[in-house]
């Protein structure tokens, strides 16, 4: 091992004895308190590893700048018209990218042996998984807020105002709760955090481009258009766009919520099963 931050001062035997002798086992904490403790852990990670958040928020910001100023005029006639069209989709992209980290951090815990430690504790078993949602949701909100704020700085004004933007953000965050369990399952099955990251982005990247995030599918050839229309990311982007425009598309919103619930119903139990047996 290299570079200790400080010289390891000796463990003091008398103090070690005192520390060992001094505890009585406290009563077990309840399930909610345990889950909240894991939530606190998730928040600490957001604080200590901001790079992780930077990576995923910068990519969509880059796309926002590139597409708006390079292609915006060509695609939508003017950059401001294009910004109006694409920002809700980029919000979706930004937050969905962040969900991959649910799997990445779970895999890190697994490969570092942290999962073993948690599983050897007398705690409510789903607590580590549920608690991590809290840290995750903070990440989602930050990622979404960043892209909206950058959009506003560039001149984007949602017709439905702040309320519309908040509603769209809330919808994407709820959808992400469902989707994150897919990556959690990957996190428990694959060998390394990097493998999870690669698999996650390999899945989500093409899906984002084969959606209506960047271009109006009406301009696409038939078969491609058919795919884009059923792509969940399109449906979610449509729902967000409608919320931000103040003309809620109830169908798209309901489908998004149902899909989120469906993903959670399948992949949450799978995650807990794998977590217990790995």
């Amino acid at each position: 091992m290299s570079a200790a931050t400080t010289a390891p001062d000796a463990a003091d035997t008398a103090a070690v004895r005192r520390a060992i002798a001094s505890t009585a086992r406290p009563p077990r904490p309840g399930p909610l308190s345990t889950a909240l403790t894991f939530g606190w852990r998730g928040m600490l990670k957001v604080k200590h590893v901001p790079e992780q958040l930077m990576d995923v928020t910068l990519t969509p910001v880059m796309f926002l700048l590139m597409f708006t100023y390079l292609f915006g005029g060509a695609i939508a006639g003017s950059t401001s018209a294009y910004l109006d069209y694409t920002l809700p989709g980029l919000l979706v992209m930004s937050v969905l990218f962040t969900t991959v980290y649910a799997g990445v951090s779970l895999n890190t815990d697994l490969t570092k042996g942290v999962v073993d430690r948690f599983r050897s504790l007398p705690i409510w078993r789903p607590a580590p998984l549920l608690g991590s949602l809290l840290g995750d949701s903070v990440r989602y909100v930050i990622a979404g807020t960043v892209i909206i704020v950058v959009g506003v700085l560039l001149g984007y004004r949602p017709d439905a105002g702040v309320a519309g933007a908040v509603a769209a953000l809330a919808l994407v965050v709820v959808f992400s709760f469902g989707l994150s369990w897919v990556f959690s399952v990957l996190g428990l099955l694959l060998r390394s955090p990097n493998a999870v990251m690669n698999a996650g982005f390999t899945g989500i990247f093409p899906l984002t481009f084969l959606s209506n995030v960047f271009v109006d599918p009406a301009t696409l050839p038939g078969p491609l258009q058919a795919f884009v229309d059923v792509n969940l990311i399109s449906i979610l982007a449509t729902a967000c766009r409608s919320l931000m425009d103040g003309t809620p598309d109830v169908g798209a919103i309901v489908v998004s919520l149902l899909v989120a619930a469906g993903l959670a119903a399948v992949f949450l139990p799978l995650t807990t099963r794998l977590y217990r047996s790995r």
Partner: peptide
């Protein structure tokens, strides 16, 4: 009981 596993299972990001 408590377990001190073969990997020093502490959270590196804390």
């Amino acid at each position: 009981v408590s377990l001190t596993g073969q990997l020093a299972s502490v959270d590196e990001e804390l």
